[in-house]
Design a protein around this nucleic acid. Structure first.
Lengths: 210, 210
DNA sequence: GTCTATAGACTGATAGAC
DNA sequence: GTCTATCAGTCTATAGAC
């Protein structure tokens, strides 16, 4: 329990370097990032990176952990809420993630690339064991819904891939999409705002499809 | 017009190195790949890479060009075919791509990552100017369909993102999906086979949605 | 805490033997 | 064509001055 001055936390050298690292790592990935890039982006010298974070890898771990937390943040509160319907949960989730992705469009490609490079990272560097969807309320609601529907039930993994794919894929493909269509980032974001209301409608249509 | 022995082309040293480069580059990306990795994977020495391909970057360009051609291959023949309906085109495209992605699951993440690193590559290293969808038959069919439907027409970019996202995203997220669900590659591929018939149905439902 | 200078390891590329 | 040996440049990390 040290006495820490919280007020100027965001102005501290350590925080500035971490912020610079976040930007460079997220944009270029671990392998393509040089510690010199981070130093330059932070406005400080190369040696300070090791002074504050010991190594490139340890700094990366911190950045990645914070990013994963951003991704999982407040999810539990949404999907385990008994007060909202299934459709409402989906709408809230899609809106929440599109808002977050408009602010951090590079996040999905960065995270998925690094996870692919080293999937064990999920358990070694980050403790992602909690999110085992044992008895989340959303699962209960899903099971109730498929019980009512007469249609042959498809694997729930399909629906998860659908919701996540419809929401996140445009951001992953954004560099290619914008290059081919000539869209600006602003124009692209307008489409993403539209998808906040469109995706829940589409998911509903998919659920009730032939 | 040189005389080339086509028969043993696949057994040549040059081809073996290119094949090794394809595997390593696709799996690790340009920055994380070392020429020594390629040499080792090819079974030959490091010096031969420069003997046959002059540099790491030129070898990468060849691999990337072939990958992009794989992705665009035979697309024109499908989307510009006046003999098939819009629904049929979508079904053929989805089936074609899922088949290809089951064989090359790393391709989307690799291509999109490298394009993001350097979007100008699409025009400088590859001549991707032809695919301007000026008057493809599929566009004509799409316009006819939205003309018939009374509903307010959404941006066609949404539908492209939907088809591509539903098809490709599971492969991009595969490392994470399989890690969280404990699925094997074989189990994952069973789901992808299911999506060959499911995605066209879902797209239809989306088109006719509220 | 912050800097310069540099060590030590690694990378892409090449020279030269065979 | 294929190899070993090595160069020149760059990288991460650290030593040491201030």
């Amino acid at each position: 329990m040290k006495e820490i001055t919280q007020i100027e936390k965001n102005d501290s050298t350590e925080e500035k370097i971490k912020q610079a690292a976040r930007e460079v790592f997220t944009q270029k990935g671990y392998a393509a990032t040089r510690t010199r890039d981070i130093a330059e982006a932070s406005g400080y010298n190369l040696a300070l990176i090791n002074y504050y974070f010991r190594s490139k890898e340890k700094l990366f771990d911190i950045v990645m952990l914070e990013h994963l937390q951003t991704f999982v943040h407040s999810i539990l509160g949404i999907v385990d809420d008994p007060a909202t319907t299934l459709q409402t949960k989906i709408k809230i989730l899609v809106t929440h993630y599109i808002d977050m992705l408009i602010k951090n469009p590079d996040l999905p490609l960065f995270i998925l690339s690094e996870i692919k490079q080293d999937p064990s990272m999920l358990i070694s560097k980050v403790g992602v064991g909690k999110m085992q969807h044992k008895e989340l309320y959303i699962v209960k609601q899903w099971n109730e819904m498929v019980a009512i529907t007469k249609k042959p039930s498809i694997n729930p993994a399909h629906m998860i891939m659908n919701v996540v794919g419809l929401t996140i894929f445009p951001f992953i493909g954004s560099p290619l999409i914008r290059n081919r269509t000539g869209m600006s980032v602003a124009q692209f974001n307008v489409l993403m705002e539209e998808r906040k209301t469109l995706i829940p409608i589409w998911i509903n249509a998919i659920i009730n499809a032939e």
